[in-house]
């Protein structure tokens, strides 16, 4: 029961141990303590999805989750979706090919949310995709190309799109 905690998490496949304030959200711990800056701070309420990361495979809002709550867990952020050799995954390539980013602020959360959907397997209609992604907001309103990219990733490789 201290103000500071030493936490160990696996971040994008790499074990990381760091000391930080007990009050730090996972997002702040990632960005400010271990300098993994692809998840973004948007609303601070779990609504916009810019901070989406995978914790043990499940999408969560890292802005409303304390790092202390998930110590010992495996965290994957957008940059951790790349192939092992560092090349872009199928899903990342699809986002690139379909111009699925405008200002880019929502993109790290959007692509992590999409990766979680692909990892569930199966296929989804465009309507089902919209519903599944309703918790990720793009303030440029670039939803069309984003859905195009995810549909292309489904079509080209399904689960392999996770890379």
């Amino acid at each position: 029961m201290t103000d500071e905690l030493v936490l160990t998490l696996t971040v994008n496949g790499r074990p990381v141990t760091a000391r930080g304030g007990a009050h730090l959200t996972l997002l702040r711990w990632l960005r400010d303590v271990v300098h993994v800056t692809d998840p973004k701070y948007g609303c601070g309420e779990g609504i916009c999805g810019a901070c989406t990361v995978l914790v043990d495979g499940e999408p969560v809002s890292s802005c409303i989750l304390l790092a202390a709550q998930v110590t010992g867990s495996s965290v994957v952020t957008a940059s951790g979706l790349s192939n092992e050799d560092g090349s872009p995954s199928l899903l990342q390539r699809a986002f690139h090919a379909h111009h699925a980013a405008q200002c880019g602020f929502c993109t790290p959360g959007m692509i992590v949310a999409a990766a979680a959907l692909l990892a569930e397997g199966g296929n989804r209609s465009r309507t089902e995709l919209r519903e599944a992604l309703h918790g990720n907001l793009c303030r440029c309103t670039g939803y069309g190309p984003i859905l195009d990219a995810i549909e292309a990733a489904y079509a080209e490789g399904g689960e392999a799109g996770v890379g």
């Binding site: 959200t25 601070g44 779990g46 304390l66």
Partner: peptide, 26 residues
């Protein structure tokens, strides 16, 4: 008390609540 934190953490982020200690029962 802290369980999932999905209502509590937004309140803390907004500065509407300043706890001294969170007791994680999860």
């Amino acid at each position: 008390v802290l369980a999932g934190g999905q209502s509590l953490l937004p309140l803390i982020n907004a500065g509407l609540f300043e706890p001294g200690l969170l007791v994680d029962i999860a």
